[in-house]
């Protein structure tokens, strides 16, 4: 295999060789999402009610906080990969594409950090009275 077409090589625009990993990661996180979101839906429907005491005690357990954290990390990773493809399909101007992909990175890393911090804070400090 070469490094893309001759023209691509001249412009330094051959395949980045990351496509296969991206594709596979999207599938692996899809399987992770399937397991973790099914857990969340069933676990929520299992609750007797949605009162604060019930939900706060539920989320503070390690057996809930840990899969919740895993789910946040897994979904935001899946979203990072998924929306990247969506942006690359629709935003063609190089400058705008770069800016949009940068915003996407801020969003997914910020969102995951925020969510994980909130779950951890709640589980570690217990429900504030």
């Amino acid at each position: 295999m070469g490094n893309g077409t001759k023209l691509g090589r001249v412009r330094g625009l051959g395949s980045a060789k990351h496509g296969g990993k991206h594709w596979l990661d999207q599938r692996l996180t899809a399987v992770g999402n399937l397991l973790l979101t099914t857990w969340l839906v069933l676990s929520l429907l299992w609750l007797p009610n949605f009162d604060y005491e019930t939900v706060a005690a539920w989320l503070a357990q390690p057996s809930v906080a840990v899969p919740m954290i895993l789910m946040l990390a897994n979904i935001f990773w899946h979203v990072r990969l998924g929306l990247q493809v969506l942006i690359e399909d629709y935003v063609h101007d190089e400058g705008n594409k770069f800016a949009t992909l940068t915003l996407l990175n801020f969003y997914v890393i910020g969102g995951a950090a925020f969510g994980i911090f909130m779950v951890a804070k709640h589980a570690f400090t217990g429900a504030p009275a």
Binding site: V55, M118, P128
Partner: peptide, 16 residues
């Protein structure tokens, strides 16, 4: 979906 989920988690962490 994710913004609402984050809001919900933060509201639980924030107390009653």
């Amino acid at each position: 979906g994710m913004l609402t989920l984050l809001w919900w988690l933060a509201s639980i962490a924030g107390g009653p």
